[in-house]
């Protein structure tokens, strides 16, 4: 009755969501008095055995090259084979781009109830209930899983990555029957050097208050100093000042960084829905009536063009950057 974590990777490197899923699986296994195991698909350049330091003892590796890129149907099938062989009763994945693709199919295959968007460990005192984010971050639901096998897709940035002080894990080659993928990945384009928005711990975001795309230099500079990702509000993406993938909000990406700095964003309810799981929110806006201040932890009422350069200077001092 083990807990199995799916370790997803991109171009051979373990994704941040996978470390979170692994840490969650290890904590859950300890809560249930069982062991956590993990499964890796495809070729990895990262050291698989070293994942043992997060508290996992055994890792199944299906090294088939056809698994280097995602085909959700094929991945779900292989993970199901591993889960059955390992006797896993609970499977944990990240609710990131791969997890969202794989988990629903896996749920059907294993006749296993799925809770996607989980934000905390399940309540196993009476049944099995998982807290998840609903209404685009405006509320939580406690969802009971009624099936024997259970699947949890963990929201990114909802569970801290913790090392459990173990040595190397045992890596066991698993001979799965791998179907030929029907989805052929032809190109992977990643913005090199930038922090992916969904994984970022700090996000600096700009709105219409910045007046035009030419004024994003200070947003980018502050983000770079803080190791942050950049984001924007919907009007900014819709007017093509910034690319669509930077749009956070109800119909864009929902994020949960440790720190969200909103500059020149009024805080429409749809925008708040995408960011209100952020642990700390800073709002900089010249309008003291901006609704965003009600959702903020810290605020500065002032003109972004005067305030932000001052913040940049102070962050430089803090980080010891000349």
């Amino acid at each position: 009755m083990s807990v199995l974590a799916f370790i997803d990777q991109s171009e051979g490197q373990v994704k941040k969501g996978a470390y979170e899923a692994l840490s969650y699986a290890v904590k859950l296994a300890s809560q249930l008095g069982t062991t956590a195991e993990a499964v890796v698909l495809g070729k990895l350049t990262d050291d698989i055995a070293a994942l043992g330091k997060y508290g996992v003892k055994k890792i199944y590796h299906v090294a088939d090259e056809q698994l280097n890129h995602l085909d959700a149907q094929v991945f779900a099938d292989v993970i199901a084979q591993v889960a059955r062989a390992a006797g896993a009763k609970i499977i944990v994945l990240s609710n990131n781009s791969d997890g969202k693709a794989i988990a629903p199919g896996l749920s059907v295959k294993l006749k296993a109830g799925l809770v996607s968007g989980a934000v905390a460990l399940p309540d196993t005192g009476n049944g099995f209930t998982v807290k998840k984010s609903v209404f685009s971050g405006k509320a939580f639901a406690h969802v009971a899983i009624k099936t024997d096998i259970k699947i949890i897709a963990l929201n990114p940035n909802s569970f801290s990555i913790t090392e459990a002080g173990g040595g190397n894990a045992e890596v066991s080659a698993f001979a799965a029957a791998v179907n030929t993928p029907k989805v052929k990945v032809t190109a992977v384009n990643k913005v090199k050097g930038d922090v992916p928005l969904g994984e970022a711990e700090v996000v600096v975001s700009g709105g219409r208050g910045l007046k035009g795309p030419e004024n994003w230099g200070m947003i980018e500079e502050l983000a770079k100093l803080l190791g942050a990702a950049t984001a924007c509000s919907r009007p900014v993406a819709d007017t093509h000042w910034r690319p669509h993938h930077e749009h956070v909000g109800q119909t864009g990406l929902a994020i949960a960084p440790n720190l969200y700095i909103a500059i020149g964003i009024s805080g429409a309810i749809q925008h708040l829905a995408g960011v209100n799981r952020s642990k700390t929110i800073v709002v900089i806006n010249k309008d003291p009536e901006a609704p965003f201040f009600k959702a903020a932890d810290y605020g500065i009422v002032g003109d972004a063009f005067e305030v932000v350069p001052g913040i940049i200077e102070e962050v430089k001092k803090l980080k010891g950057v000349a």
Partner: peptide
């Protein structure tokens, strides 16, 4: 935008 389960497409495909 209410349940945010992102599940129907994947389940349907399977």
């Amino acid at each position: 935008i209410d349940h945010n389960s992102a599940s129907i497409g994947g389940m349907l495909a399977e």
